[in-house]
């Protein structure tokens, strides 16, 4: 049982996850930011590795990715920075990024390096189920690395079931079909979608992401799922000076 499973077993609701892009706003801050987030009361983390063409992301994460690449972030640098991760951080950590940088690094090598660094899971939006199952799942499974799939309001019930069967930590529910950085829109249709997923009694817990940026949206999401993920709002927050000292303030504003 990895850190993710343990977390979901020990804490039942209001789980808060934070996303940030490694290498933004500067290099060699990944573990310091992670440490500050854990101290501020965050339950688990998603560390993004940047890609030149992030099609699922809005302007905020496009910008942080571009800057991170300019700063020299890549997978070698990231794994170098993560060397003392597990001396300083104990909450579950996921890596999130696009498939091509992983493919060039080597999928098997990536999985090994990630687990060595103490990473618990990966979110790769553009690695589809078919390719994952037929070509790559063995590397994830052999190394004990979770692969987290996304579900949108348009994902069919049958497909949600398949995703649930391939998952072994949690399912990432998108608050709408959109790129990152938009505001959560609650409508009857979206509430129906959350209720529909809840009623399916999946074996994996669900966490809601995309559009969660405030205490209000966080609380709303937690009514329908075990917790929620804040991404773009935190990346925007990192633009200011003294961001490390001010992290507790930001987290407090979300959890209230």
């Amino acid at each position: 049982m990895n850190r993710l499973n343990k977390l979901f077993e020990s804490k039942k609701d209001n789980l808060l996850s934070i996303y940030f892009t490694a290498g933004y706003p500067e290099l060699n801050t990944t573990v310091a930011i992670a440490e500050a987030l854990e101290k501020a009361g965050v339950d688990f983390l998603e560390i993004g590795f940047p890609y030149s063409d992030p099609v699922a992301d809005g302007p905020t994460i496009q910008h942080s990715s571009e800057r991170a690449l300019e700063n020299g972030m890549n997978l070698n640098q990231l794994f170098e920075e993560l060397k003392d991760l597990r001396e300083r951080v104990s909450i579950p950590v996921l890596l999130m990024g696009y498939f091509n940088p992983m493919l060039q690094y080597g999928i098997e090598r990536f999985c090994k390096k990630a687990v060595e660094a103490g990473v618990d899971g990966v979110i790769v939006p553009d690695l589809p189920m078919y390719e994952y199952e037929t070509l790559y799942s063995r590397y994830f499974i052999d190394n004990g690395l979770s692969n987290i799939f996304l579900v949108t309001p348009q994902t069919s019930q049958e497909r949600v079931r398949r995703i649930d069967s391939l998952s072994n930590s949690f399912i990432y529910l998108l608050s709408s079909s959109s790129i990152t950085g938009k505001n959560l829109q609650l409508s009857n249709a979206i509430e129906d979608y959350y209720k529909r997923i809840k009623a399916m009694q999946l074996k994996n817990p669900a966490i809601i992401g995309f559009g969660i940026s405030s205490n209000e949206t966080f609380k709303k999401a937690c009514e329908y799922a075990r917790g929620a993920i804040v991404g773009s709002a935190f990346v925007k927050f990192l633009e200011q000076d003294n961001y490390l000292e001010r992290i507790p303030e930001f987290i407090k504003s979300i959890k209230n």
Binding site: V55, A56, F99, P125, D126, L127, P128, Y130, E131, F149, L150, V151, T152, Q154, T155, S156, R159, L174, S177, S178, I179
Partner: peptide
């Protein structure tokens, strides 16, 4: 049938585009 020409092709898309 899977959308491949030899080693190339497929549909490497995020779930949002799947439907």
């Amino acid at each position: 049938e899977q959308g491949y020409y030899g080693d190339f092709g497929g549909a490497y898309i995020p779930e949002m585009l799947y439907p």
